[in-house]
């Protein structure tokens, strides 16, 4: 019995808890992609960089706050710096829209052209980020590292296996829940949110109803910038900030958005968790888990790891391909924003 509990704790510690926080980060990222897709109707390749851009400003503001001696007690100072990152990112994406995408909207460009333009924006942002903060790893986490650590858990329970909960994991999940709740309230309850859904549902009819497309587009960018900054900051706090990692995040984020059905916010969230859990479950070494659950002679000698962690991006790819082959509209098709 105790070995079974140990097995569960082991899975919780190395699989469920990390996947929950990683999934929340992906979900917030995928929400931004989905929002832009349903309002502007293109896949925004610059989304990973938007996350990095927002996080960069959060880090800069965090350093400034730290130099002033400001801290947020046990919580990371970066949370106080979030508004700065959000505002900087909002201004930047609105400027990009004015300078780049607006031109293509006026020329009624096809969505492939928009997508390629967003690749261009991605490279520009890429450059700006490396100019400002450099390509290296940045640690900006401060405050209390653990809610409770492995040693404390062992003392409380007397188990061999330990469960440690990091502050960032809890912050990630809680923030994601709050942000998603606000977003859904906005989309379903407010006039502006409903007009966004109407515009995404039927552009022509929205125009006939007097909905101003410029306003809808502006709001979509503002929300996307906020979501991207929060997602990027949470990811950076949980792991670390390295511009290149954010570029790579684009793949699982796109996979999450597509798995859930592009344009559907509920799908984006579900997709985020599907990708996160698959990625971690497939690269997890199960040997110890089998040692707790199986009789000795059945326990494998190797790590019992399906895929090396180097291949974690392949998991997103495979899921993406399978979904596109089997159910191209995604798991939650039929409902838009």
């Amino acid at each position: 019995m105790e070995s079974l509990i140990n097995a569960v704790v082991l899975l919780l510690n190395f699989l469920v808890v990390p996947a929950l926080s990683y999934g929340s980060q992906l979900a917030l990222g995928a929400l931004g992609v989905t929002l832009i897709y349903s309002v502007l109707r293109f896949s925004n390749f610059a989304h990973g960089e938007t996350m990095a851009f927002g996080t960069m400003f959060v880090i800069l503001a965090t350093w400034l706050l730290q130099s002033w001696g400001v801290s947020f007690g046990p919580l990371p100072t970066a949370l106080l710096a979030l508004p700065v990152g959000c505002i900087a990112t909002i201004l930047f994406v609105l400027a990009t829209d004015r300078l780049v995408y607006k031109h293509y909207r006026e020329h009624k460009a096809t969505n492939v052209i928009f997508m390629i333009a967003s690749v261009g924006v991605m490279f520009v942002m890429n450059g700006i980020i490396r100019f400002v903060i450099g390509p290296e790893d940045q640690q900006f986490f401060d405050g209390e590292r653990f809610i409770f650590n492995a040693r404390q858990f062992k003392e409380w329970t007397g188990l061999t296996e330990a469960l440690a909960i990091r502050t960032t994991q809890v912050i990630t999940v809680v923030t994601a829940i709050i942000v998603v709740a606000i977003l859904f309230w906005f989309l379903n309850r407010t006039r502006t949110g409903k007009s966004m859904r109407a515009y995404s549902d039927n552009e022509d009819l929205a125009l006939l109803s007097g909905i101003d497309p410029a306003h809808v587009v502006r709001i979509a960018w503002i929300i996307t910038a906020i979501l991207a900054t929060i997602a990027g900051t949470l990811y950076g706090l949980d792991k670390s900030f390295k511009p290149f990692t954010y570029l790579q995040l684009l793949l699982p984020i796109f996979a999450a958005a597509i798995v859930g059905g592009v344009g559907n916010p509920v799908g984006a969230i579900a997709g985020g968790f599907v990708i996160a859990f698959s990625e971690i479950a497939l690269t997890f070494a199960y040997r110890k888990f089998f040692a707790y659950t199986l009789p000795d002679f059945l326990v494998p000698d190797g790590l019992a790891q399906l895929l090396s962690t180097d291949y974690k991006f392949a998991v997103s790819f495979v899921i993406l391909v399978v979904v596109l082959l089997v159910k191209p509209t995604g798991l939650f098709s039929g409902k838009t924003l």
């Binding site: 409903k194 007009s195 859904r197 109407a198 549902d201 039927n202 009819l205 929205a206 109803s209 838009t336």
Partner: peptide, 13 residues
């Protein structure tokens, strides 16, 4: 009509 929105939301829009 806005197919994904409720009847009432259609009227609101």
């Amino acid at each position: 009509v806005f197919t994904s929105m409720s009847v009432e939301e259609n009227l609101e829009m």
